[in-house]
Design a protein around this nucleic acid. Sequence first.
DNA 1: ATCTGTACTGAATCTCGTT
DNA 2: GAACGAGATTCAGTACAGA
Lengths: 339, 339
Amino acid sequence: MLPAASVDCVFADPPYNLQLRGELRRPDDSVVDGVDEEWDRFTDFAAYDAFTREWLGECRRVLRKDGTLWVIGTYHNIFRIGAILQELGFWILNDVVWRKANPMPNFRGRRFTNAHETLIWAARGRESRHRFNYQAMKALNDDVQMRSDWYFPLCTGSERLRNEHGLKLHPTQKPEALLHRVLLACTQPGDVVLDPFLGTGTSAAVAKRLARHFIGIERHPAYVEAALGRVRRVRPAPPEAVTATPTRREAKRVPFGALVERGLLPAGTVLTDRMRRVQAVVVADGTLRSGTHHGSIHQVGAAVQNAPSCNGWTFWHIDRDGTLAAIDTLRAGLIAPPD
Amino acid sequence: MLPAASVDCVFADPPYNLQLRGELRRPDDSVVDGVDEEWDRFTDFAAYDAFTREWLGECRRVLRKDGTLWVIGTYHNIFRIGAILQELGFWILNDVVWRKANPMPNFRGRRFTNAHETLIWAARGRESRHRFNYQAMKALNDDVQMRSDWYFPLCTGSERLRNEHGLKLHPTQKPEALLHRVLLACTQPGDVVLDPFLGTGTSAAVAKRLARHFIGIERHPAYVEAALGRVRRVRPAPPEAVTATPTRREAKRVPFGALVERGLLPAGTVLTDRMRRVQAVVVADGTLRSGTHHGSIHQVGAAVQNAPSCNGWTFWHIDRDGTLAAIDTLRAGLIAPPD
DNA sequence: ATCTGTACTGAATCTCGTT
DNA sequence: GAACGAGATTCAGTACAGA
């Protein structure tokens, strides 16, 4: 039994409770190889709910206070999972849609092509202060905020694990790209990732590559064997490659006074806002003066705007040859003081 | 009280139970005008669930045996709704994702941009034989199966209803394009559509335009008044423009159907050629009718000229204040969905 | 008329470490 | 605990004013 509060992140891909009836054939009369495993058979919703409540409750127990959990599912099971999550005290942060580049078409023409799956991302509780590598996600997305709709192909080709007969080893193997984004978003190197439905080990393989620790639970021996071999073959990326772009809050701080001390903004320099509507003078001790206002760059910025708060680093600008630059940009060249 | 089994389709946009606390400011310090209406306040999940069970149960009672129901929501409420739907005996057909072209960003950088909402489409029961206008949906999507992920802009600009002060009349008015696709997918002219949370009447306006009957329920007098006026201003499209049939169409970045959905070329619009020799009527699924000809803009263009082929985008024109413009020019304003 | 820059807005569960 | 204060944080689209 895992100790309580020992895991930073859970990724779970539980049985979907598909409730399929009979075989499905394509228009050319070939048979679709659907999910028909013993592990996806539940007698009714009550049985599925009880099963869900049990494993989700246990995940919550082993999660650290600020840890987060991901679950992936489809309309067959995701609504039950989401509702139970909320009842157990999890705090939903996002639902994320995995849009499939190449979904299976709807052969009968009776519904829309089922072209996505849903992931729920939740913190252990409402008071959790979860990790979110905002800048890393933004960087992954061409420098605009990462949205809740993701686009990935299915796991096919050489990534798909197959047995000696060339048949797929697991009916619902997830693409590594999906796990890469999940783990990069909410963990850091050295974190412990738990997957309670390991299957063929996609989460473990990606965790190892990203230098995260992992714990996998799987009861099917053939899947365990495949996952172990797969993880063994993974080479971790070098340390400098697995750390997400730090959030600004994590970056070492450069005090405004340092810019004054080092002569980048000599005392007496005049700063202005982006619209050149107000001005302030840099004082030798790293404060600003603007009219009767006097204080930190943030305080004076807030005061001149009559606003409750202000980030002085982005509000105040310096005029260089007629063009304005936020003083924030001056920090880039400075080395932060040790701790 | 509505009689049992009297409604063909329900569209419901219930309160989301957002649970907001405190005000949220943008980086420029402006305040976000969030949803803080009385109707979105519930004491807890139990209260919300009881409310949900009641209205959903009533919807099931008034639905015909083969009728279907749509509900829209976000992660705040959609999991509870989906679970209760299943418990009441509804049979989920699809979950559909509305990807927003222009969602509000996440201002604090603590989560992914909440860029979508979820719709659940369900039949009254597992044994229902629901209506799905497969060919119409395919035609609307450039002759490939319509997927479960839809891309639409928010309801803004002139479509958004405003009061005398220019303020939005309703905090969550849905775009008509969304309802156009919903109603075209699962109803036929003359069907009865029920909206138990009518708001400012988007569903009713679209239903009237598509020659469907509608019943709206709304308790807020100001919303009722706005909805009544709005519906009164709607002109129904002509009969031949609201039924759907199959077409074949060459792939284009922006499907012709998108122009119809977004209201740039409403169903019933009359197109003509450059010399005003022939006319054609726009059908709601993005096809054209001209005399006995019916098909894609290209097919009908070719047929009326007795030519082997035709580029409908440049052949067909719209009369705007006496001057003709090729429909191709209307595409410029539309941004194709990414991927 | 056409272009450009500015302002405004949208179903949002939106900070965190130190005192 | 609460209070304080530094400082982190936005994208797409529409509307409108001014050139």
